[in-house]
Amino acid sequence: MILSDEQVRWVAHLARLELTEVELTAFGGQLSSIMNYVDQLRAVPTEGVEPFTHALPLVNVLRDDIVAPSLSAAEALANAPARQGDYFTVPAVLE
């Protein structure tokens, strides 16, 4: 399998990753070779095998519904690259 430039660009768009032209070409080749390698899985007979997501028989683990302390707004915002008051700042979404 060879991933076309167009496919690599599409995946990069889905992943919200800006790639340089150099990266685009390099990843195209590397991803194609990795996908060729993982393609072996398609030949493994798995009819009737349930997908296995993780190792523990834990489901719906919930804590008690009790108000408990959490991070203050100041702590939560401390690492924000741009903020205004108690808000994270993003570029305008609506014109």
């Binding site: 768009h13 992943a15 919200r16 990753l17 990843f27 996908m35």
Partner: peptide, 20 residues
């Protein structure tokens, strides 16, 4: 903002794995 921050912040292997 998303794609440029991520493109600038992540190295090659991380990008490769996110892509994969």
């Amino acid at each position: 903002l998303y794609s440029r921050s991520r493109g600038e912040g992540f190295g090659a292997e991380v990008k490769r794995r996110i892509m994969l």
